[in-house]
């Protein structure tokens, strides 16, 4: 197993805190208050998009560990072991997986960060993978059919699409202002333009 450097540890600890801090920020209610958007799942996408697979997933795992240890870091001041017994356990378990997938795809994209690639990575990790695990969890804990659980989770889809866009735009800004987190692309993507 790859050994983490002290810089990795510092990044993991501070980004775990970022996800926690985003839970403290009050929810925004666009679309006439129909879908509440808490900034916390935005934090999951940002961990993967900025730190990459290993450190991003590590930060999310650490944040969940702190929640399990009794800190009220989930949106709305929830925390403790109780949240892992509830029906949203699939989403919580899916968070580090989503961060890993987003990070893995973002690393494949390399530097400089491209918006379209970032959007794609966030859709695959933050929506496809996360919803698959979340729906399985709800169906299991709440004893629902997969269809019923999927219909229930569709309520949040709109908000999460907005978050995918925000996460990619913010990640691009961060990588521009603080280069060096992603490896440069070895193969240039500029294809010769024929006149």
């Amino acid at each position: 197993m790859q050994r983490s450097t002290s810089r990795d540890l510092a990044l993991i600890a501070t980004f775990a805190a970022v996800v926690a801090a985003l839970g403290v920020i009050p929810a925004v209610y666009p679309f006439g208050g129909a879908v509440p958007i808490t900034a916390q799942s935005l934090g999951i996408m940002l961990c993967g998009s900025i730190l990459g697979a290993r450190r991003g997933a590590g930060a999310v795992l650490l944040m969940l560990a702190l929640v399990a240890l009794g800190l009220p870091l989930l949106a709305g001041g929830r925390g403790g072991l109780g949240v892992f017994a509830g029906p949203s356990v699939g989403y919580l378990v899916g968070w580090p997986v989503a961060a890993y997938v987003i990070g893995w795809l973002t690393e494949r994209g390399g530097a400089p960060y491209r918006l379209a690639w970032g959007l794609g990575a966030n859709v695959v990790g933050g929506i496809v993978v996360l919803y698959a695990l979340g729906i399985l969890g709800t169906a299991w804990r709440a004893d629902l059919s997969l269809t019923a659980a999927a219909v229930g989770s569709a309520l949040f889809l709109l908000g999460d699409v907005v978050k995918v866009v925000i996460a990619a735009v913010v990640a691009r800004g961060v990588h521009q202002a603080y280069p060096g987190l992603l490896r440069r692309r070895t193969v240039p993507d500029e294809t010769p333009v024929r006149a």
Binding site: R7, A10, A17, Y178, L181
Partner: peptide, 22 residues
């Protein structure tokens, strides 16, 4: 604006992580 908030917050956090790592 979420961008005008999140970008500076994350850049400051990364700088803090650098100092913590050192």
């Amino acid at each position: 604006s979420p961008r005008a908030f999140a970008v500076p917050l994350l850049v400051r956090t990364l700088r803090h992580a650098d100092r913590l790592g050192d």
